[in-house]
Design a protein around this nucleic acid. Sequence first.
DNA 1: TAGCATCCATACGCTGCCGTATGGTATTGT
DNA 2: ACAATACCATACGGCAGCGTATGGATGCTA
Lengths: 170, 170
Amino acid sequence: MLRELGIDHVKVEPLAQRLGVTKGSFYWHFKDRRDLLRALPEFWARRQTDPVLAHVQSTPGGPIDKMWAILEFIAREDPDQYDNAMRAWAQFDPDVATAVAAIDDRRMATARSLFEEAGLSPADAAFRAQLWYFYDVGEHVTRDTPDTVEERLERAAQRLKLLTSDLRGV
Amino acid sequence: MLRELGIDHVKVEPLAQRLGVTKGSFYWHFKDRRDLLRALPEFWARRQTDPVLAHVQSTPGGPIDKMWAILEFIAREDPDQYDNAMRAWAQFDPDVATAVAAIDDRRMATARSLFEEAGLSPADAAFRAQLWYFYDVGEHVTRDTPDTVEERLERAAQRLKLLTSDLRGV
DNA sequence: TAGCATCCATACGCTGCCGTATGGTATTGT
DNA sequence: ACAATACCATACGGCAGCGTATGGATGCTA
């Protein structure tokens, strides 16, 4: 419901009908609607970013290898637009906004440390990480992600090249 | 209402109350709620992107000068998050999505032609324009825009430098 | 000044959704 | 076998918002 119609459409009665149950069931599992909404951000964080960060931890090689590992990992997933729905929600709910900002920080911090590892100064690395990450956000939010894995991989390679061509080959 | 709470909160009765009138007035000006919503995308396009494109048309100099003109123009505006609200809406309404996509295309086409003018091949210019534009989108959607004009200008200069440092000075 | 169009208020019925109260069934522990 | 607990359905009252019907009020026009 969140992905398809937005947070204002995750309502308990339509939700129950979609699941083939009634409201009575819902109010046994959750105190009220707010209680359900509170559980969503953490669910999202666990599902969408923990796997990526775990994957980059476990890949060997230099920083550019790890950047490629991230890009490849994401390109091989099917883009399910969960991020978009969360951002749309965060737009209008301060609590969710801080939750999403925390995720953004975690992701950008990873990129930043990799750019530092590749030889950039902290300030330059921070900016480069922004450019890196914002491309991802922009691609998702404008729904401009290619349909096939091959196209996504090619575009990712292009991005990595442009963002690291001036760095030492580590 | 759209900017602050999202499209699902532009409802006729709260809207009327906010304007200090009653529903009776609303239903004289608009057929129904859908009629109001239909008018919003065009209103947004006129207000948010026409001025920028008009401004770049009227600035002299080479393509990089014009790129700077765009960045400077946007940096001097106060970021009012209208774009974000439209994107949040477009996320869940296909008609709005096409309207927003049309705006994205217009903006990116401008950047693309400038990169071509600066010597890039059509394919390279298209990718470079994406990177250019997605940074903008990412900055807005993550609410990471600096508060002061000076900081925004500095960041814009940094962006322009990184995206054009390998091009001929035209 | 009579008539018509413009603009807004009041009042009404209807629907969708929330949250609660209450009862029923199934499963588990002893 | 018999509680007790977990899980779900039904039924209710209440509110918010939609759209319509109707009646002023004001201004323009002949």
